[in-house]
């Protein structure tokens, strides 16, 4: 009788342990996760760090993980970040989440981390070392989506102005490739001009003001984010009809769009990635530490704002900031199962 009772107690414990494991609480409570970030000098990165702080401090408080510290290198340099990652290994972190200064230059340090048994998850600025997890953004699709939206909205087609990002950066090449692919596929548009706006409103405004006099009528402006408001100012100053400018989720862009929408029913869309992707990376690292089966390559969804949900997103975006979403453990699980 006693024996049977003992067994049943054991079984109960086992059931309890199993259900705890599913809640992903028991296994990672003692684990420490570090964020290695290469740069913090713009609004997007600041929002990214704030999201990390907010979500991880809650996770630490409720005992999901033991620690989740953020480290940013003082200078945006590959060798410095490599040294930082090696230091994080020595500090005994169980997982390192990386926004990398270079997709290739950190591979040596990342390999050292994997060899030391540390889980490495990279996001936004991803690393190519095969042992690391990658949360990438399909920037090409983002560029293509802009053109597809315009094709839908402007069935007659016409001339487009393209504002590109920082020359020589991988993200700029990808978005631009997507835009050109979209233009070729829809066959309605001609890109009549292309300038570098460096993802900054002031640069974009100057660049657009410079090229406008040489352009025929344009029906749309395809952008990369951080440049839509500057383009609108330049076009307004030139006294031209306002084309459909695709926005990039910055607060000033959304604000301007809202004003135009209220004044004359202006319609457009806005797309970018949410800085809160850092929190998705955090949960993915937590899941890997928990022993979940996670594919090495994951794709993060864009944050797209349309005519309908503009007000709602503008209200939650602080002045000078970027529209953001923070991911939860459930979101991370959805992304992971979506990639299986």
């Amino acid at each position: 009788m006693l024996r049977i009772k003992g067994i049943s107690v054991l079984a109960l414990v086992a059931v309890a342990a199993a259900s705890f494991g599913q809640a992903a609480l028991a296994d990672t409570a003692g684990k420490r996760i570090a964020l290695s970030n290469n740069y913090a000098g713009n609004s997007w990165r600041q929002a990214m760090l704030r999201s990390w702080e907010k979500v991880t401090s809650a996770a630490v408080a409720d005992g999901t993980v033991a620690a989740a510290d953020a480290f940013t290198t003082a200078e945006n340099q590959v060798t410095e970040q490599a040294a930082q990652i090696q230091n994080l290994i020595l500090q005994g972190y169980d997982a390192i989440v990386i926004n990398a200064a270079s997709p290739e230059g950190l591979n040596g340090a990342v390999k050292e981390a994997c060899d030391a048994g540390v889980t490495v998850v990279s996001f936004d600025g991803i690393v190519t070392e095969p042992c690391a997890w990658r949360i990438a953004v399909n920037f090409k699709q983002m560029g293509k989506d802009e053109v597809l939206y315009l094709a839908d909205k402007l069935p007659d087609g016409g001339n487009l102005l393209e504002i590109r990002g920082l020359a020589g950066v991988f993200v700029d090449d990808e978005i631009s490739a997507g835009i050109h692919e979209g233009v070729a596929e829809t066959g309605k548009f001609t890109i009549v001009g292309s300038v570098n706006g460096n993802w900054a409103q002031d640069v974009a405004q100057k660049a657009v003001a410079g090229i406008l006099p040489s352009l025929p009528d344009i029906v749309g402006v395809v952008t990369q984010g951080g440049d839509g408001y500057g383009a609108a100012q330049a076009i307004k100053a030139a006294g031209r009809d306002m084309p459909v400018i695709v926005m990039g989720n910055r607060q000033d862009e959304l604000q301007w769009w809202k004003e135009q929408k209220d004044a004359n029913g202006y319609e457009t869309m806005s797309v970018s990635i949410a800085p809160g992707v850092s929190t998705l990376a955090f949960w993915v690292a937590q899941q890997v530490l928990d022993g979940a089966d996670v594919p090495k390559d994951l794709t993060v969804p864009f944050l797209r704002i349309d005519q309908g949900n503009l007000e709602e997103n503008l209200a939650t975006t602080e002045a000078g900031g970027v529209a953001n979403v923070e991911y939860s453990l459930e979101d991370a699980k959805t992304v992971i199962s979506g990639a299986m």
């Binding site: 200078e75 340099q77 590959v78 060798t79 410095e80 490599a82 270079s102 290739e104 230059g105 950190l106 591979n107 040596g108 340090a109 390999k111 190519t128 070392e129």
Partner: peptide
């Protein structure tokens, strides 16, 4: 030596040096 450690290169890799 630097490439031996990082396994691949980047045009800006050693500007700090």
């Amino acid at each position: 030596a630097l490439v031996g450690l990082t396994t691949s290169a980047d045009a800006n890799i050693a500007l700090r040096y």
